[in-house]
Amino acid sequence: MASKKRKSYTPAYRREAARLVIDTGRPIAHVAREIGVGEQLLGR
């Protein structure tokens, strides 16, 4: 079975994703789905 390569996100990308959740007040799950990352990843 082939292993998937983990995506790495820059600190700037992480900050922007977190800002989307904080500034818009939308649930993490909605923002995560919208930007294409895992909900648990964004929750961190």
Rank of each mutant, 00 (worst) to 15 (best):
Met1Val: 06
Met1Trp: 00
Ala2Val: 11
Ala2Gln: 14
Lys4Val: 11
Lys4Met: 09
Lys5Asp: 11
Lys5Ile: 10
Lys5Leu: 08
Lys5Val: 13
Lys5Gly: 10
Arg6Met: 08
Arg6Lys: 15
Arg6Ser: 11
Arg6Gly: 02
Arg6Leu: 09
Lys7Ala: 14
Lys7Pro: 08
Lys7Phe: 04
Ser8Arg: 15
Ser8Val: 15
Ser8Pro: 00
Ser8Lys: 14
Ser8Asp: 13
Ser8Gln: 15
Tyr9Cys: 03
Tyr9Gln: 03
Tyr9Leu: 08
Tyr9Asn: 02
Thr10Gly: 01
Thr10Tyr: 01
Pro11Thr: 06
Pro11Gln: 12
Pro11Asp: 12
Ala12Met: 06
Ala12Asn: 04
Ala12Leu: 11
Ala12Gln: 15
Tyr13Leu: 07
Tyr13Asp: 12
Tyr13Thr: 10
Tyr13Pro: 03
Arg14Gly: 01
Arg14Phe: 07
Arg14Ser: 07
Arg15Ser: 11
Arg15Phe: 08
Arg15Val: 03
Glu16Thr: 06
Ala17Arg: 05
Ala17Gly: 09
Ala17Lys: 08
Ala17Leu: 12
Ala17Met: 14
Ala18Leu: 10
Arg19Val: 00
Arg19Lys: 12
Leu20Met: 15
Leu20Asp: 05
Leu20Ala: 06
Val21Met: 06
Val21Arg: 12
Ile22Trp: 02
Asp23Ile: 01
Asp23Asn: 13
Thr24Lys: 01
Thr24Gly: 06
Gly25Glu: 05
Gly25Met: 06
Gly25Ala: 07
Arg26Thr: 03
Arg26Cys: 10
Pro27Tyr: 05
Pro27Phe: 05
Pro27Leu: 07
Pro27Arg: 10
Pro27Cys: 05
Ile28Cys: 13
Ile28Arg: 14
Ile28Asp: 09
Ala29Gly: 07
Ala29Ile: 09
Ala29Met: 09
Ala29Gln: 13
Ala29Pro: 07
Val31Gly: 12
Val31Asn: 11
Ala32Arg: 06
Ala32His: 05
Arg33Ile: 00
Glu34Asn: 06
Glu34Gln: 13
Glu34Pro: 07
Ile35Tyr: 00
Ile35Gln: 01
Ile35Lys: 03
Gly36Ala: 01
Gly36Asn: 02
Gly36Pro: 13
Val37Thr: 02
Val37Phe: 00
Val37Trp: 01
Gly38Ala: 15
Gly38Glu: 10
Glu39Val: 10
Glu39Gly: 06
Gln40Leu: 09
Gln40Pro: 04
Gln40Ala: 11
Gln40Ser: 15
Leu41Gly: 14
Leu41Tyr: 15
Leu41Val: 08
Leu41Ala: 14
Leu41Pro: 04
Leu42Val: 01
Leu42Gln: 01
Leu42Pro: 02
Gly43Ser: 10
Gly43Trp: 01
Gly43Phe: 00
Gly43Asp: 03
Arg44Glu: 00
Arg44Cys: 05
